[in-house]
Structure formats: structure tokens, C-alpha cells
Simulated scan of single mutants.
Amino acid sequence: MEKKTLSDISCKGRRVLMRVDFNVPLDDQANITNDKRIVEALPSIKTIMESGGRLILMSHLGRPKGKVVPELSLTPVAKRLSELLDAPVVMAGDCIGTEAMQQALALQDGEIMLLENLRFHPEEEKNEPEFARELASMGEIYVNDAFGTAHRAHASTEGICHYVQPSVAGYLIEKELKYLGQALNAPERPFLAILGGAKISGKIDVLENLFDKVDTVLIGGAMIFTFFKAQGYNIGKSLVEEDKVELAGHLLQTARDNNIRMLLPGDVVAATEFSADAETLTVPIDGIPDNMMGLDIGPQTIDTYSREILQAKTVIWNGPMGVFEIEKFAKGTIAIAQALADATAKGTISIVGGGDSAAAVMKAGLASGITHISTGGGASLEFLEGKILPGIAALND
């Protein structure tokens, strides 16, 4: 998916509309608790400003559901961005309308403004053409650098491209396409995928798309128990998708038919309840007591999976190995993150697919040891499923 990027255009003296993902976490006092998404957009922002572009940023924040929710204003983001850039950031009172347009037209070369929350308008998520056209009228160039929303056909991601040209990718999207695309289309081998999380239903399309690409798949998270149920094991009180047991058996057979090594845990950490205070027991997968549930992969599996990771040349990871939010069930996920960082240090290309996996890597303090951590959980998942992302498909080839 070769797309035009910031490097292919000149921004000097032109109004540049850029979609960013500033959907940052806020505390009760509207203070930003993690500015990573703002920091990730800085390379594109600085390039446009330093080249003399007149930059108009647009983003959503939270889920205001088409209504003005003062607590979800982007004003704190404008303040933080101004601090990071050491430059003033004009904050618009809305994302469309006469006032916002006047502020955009008043920008000089190298200046920057931020439009108010796009999702204060229901037309944004509905991708209404008139709303997209009004957004587009503020700029002469469109740049999408919000990979986290690229899987949504919204007015600011897909609709806008019909009304402003050129429409190109920012550096962050370019980086996402480079690493995710290369892994799927021309990986260095052995190519290993690690898939975790609670449910098979959320990973079916990923598995099926990866089956003709990967050499080995490591499975973790609660979805292992649906596979084990398909094999006839007693899984105690462990989470299972009863309506997916037959499918799990089919996926195991498909892996065998395609000579794909699909590894499941050999042991698990079990507990009587989903609690930080619960007593735990490490058991082989065929030895889960009736009154217990598996909540993490066990030490034997950690050892096996770590060795597999260290032998791979390309690794994609999406989904935790256990209930990593609770410390006593986080060991498997943290150990996988450490093995991935160790492999990366030896030259492996490691890609973490956003969401919980990215959070786990951050929690373990290992982010700097990974080749690429995706900024879009849902978008990276759909990319791995082989789906077309509307916000990227709409950009100029």
C-alpha cells in the first residue's frame, strides 16, 4: 500500500489540515496523564511548521456522542502541545464555522492551531459529506497522521479526502505501514506471531490471515481454554466461548494442514477467583481443578515461548498472556515482553500491535527495546486481519 507522504509535498505558505490522534487520558481535573499520543505526532507537526506550513490540527477526544461535553474539550491538549513545541498554539472554539475559519485564514507561515473536538458534532462519525466539505474548506493540503482512527470511515479520516488535494500520510502512519506491511508481505524468517487476549472471536480473522504468512503461532490469554475445550481437556471454571469450540478445533486442524506450528501453553497459573487476593496454583493444562480458573501462562510455557521468540527474525505480538492488570497474573505477559526485547537486541524485528500489548510493554519499562509499537489497537488488528483501512485507502497513491 504505497501512499504519498509528507516527504512528497511542499507545505510552505499553505494551510495544512492534519488529522492527529490526541485522544489522551485525562484525570478528574482534566490533566493529561499520558501525553504519548501528542509526542508521537511531533515529527510531522515540526516538519510542517519548520517548512513554513500553516498548520491546522484536528482530533477527537473521548466519546461525547455528538454533543458538546466541556470535560472533553481539547483545550488541555493545546496547552500541553504548546509546552512541547515551546510555541503558541491557537485553540479554536469549534472545529467548523466562521470563527474557526477566520482563525485558520489568519495563520502565518510556521504557526499552528488546534480545532475543538471533532466528535462534538454527530456528523463526524456519520461521515456526512457536508461536514467533511466544511472541514476541508479550511485547508489546502490534507495530512492524516492518526493511525489509531484509520480503520474508521469518518468525515475527518475518509470523507475529507474527497474535497482537499493532495491527501497524504504523515510520518507516523508512514512508519506504521512500513513495519506492519513489511511484516505481512516480506518478513524476515522465521516469522512468529504471538496472539493473546480473552476471546478467539476477536482473533479469528487475524489467525486466518496469518496462516499463509507465519511459521509459528504462540497462543496465550483466556482464549487458550476454548482451544483446550475443543481438545477435550477439563478447564475447570476457566473462561470459554462455548459457541466457538468447534471453530477452535477447525483452526487447530487448519494449522496442522498448513504445517504451521501452533503452540498452546503446557501449564497455567490457576486461582479460585478473579482477584488479587486469590490463592494460586501452577498446574499442567490437563490438571486444572474443577473449582479453579486459569489466569496466566505458567513457568514452563514462559520458558518454551521465550526460546521460540529468541529464535525468530520477525515477531508480531497482539494480546496479553494473562490478566496482566493483576500483578500475580502478569508474569507471563511481562516475561513475553522481556523475551521480545531480548530478541530485538539480537536483531529481531519486533512489532507490538497496540492496545493491551502496548500497555504491557510500557508497564514493563521495555518500550525502548521494541522495534515498533503500534499507536492503533483496533487499526493494527484490522491491518493484521488483512482488511482495508478507509482512512489510509482514501489517501493519494
Rank of each mutant, 00 (worst) to 15 (best):
V214A: 04
F211E: 05
L251Y: 06
E242T: 10
G220H: 05
F228P: 00
I224D: 11
F228D: 00
G249N: 10
L210G: 00
T216V: 15
A230M: 13
G249S: 12
L218Q: 03
D212F: 12
G236S: 11
G221E: 00
F227Q: 08
L247M: 07
T226I: 10
N234C: 11
L239S: 06
I224R: 04
G221P: 04
I224K: 02
L247C: 03
F211W: 11
D243G: 06
L247D: 07
G249F: 13
K237R: 13
K213E: 08
A230F: 10
T226E: 15
I235R: 03
M223W: 00
L251W: 05
I224L: 10
N234Q: 14
A248Y: 03
F211A: 04
A255V: 13
D212C: 13
T226H: 11
L239F: 09
L210P: 04
H250L: 14
G221Y: 01
T254F: 13
A255M: 15
F211P: 02
G236V: 01
G232Q: 14
T226L: 14
H250C: 09
L210M: 06
V214G: 01
I224C: 15
V245M: 06
A255W: 14
K244C: 04
I224A: 04
V217F: 01
L210K: 04
A230Y: 04
K229H: 08
V245A: 07
Q231C: 08
V240Y: 07
A255L: 15
K244F: 04
E246A: 11
F211L: 14
E246F: 06
L210I: 06
Q231S: 14
M223K: 00
N209K: 02
N234V: 11
I224Y: 05
D212G: 12
E246T: 09
A248N: 02
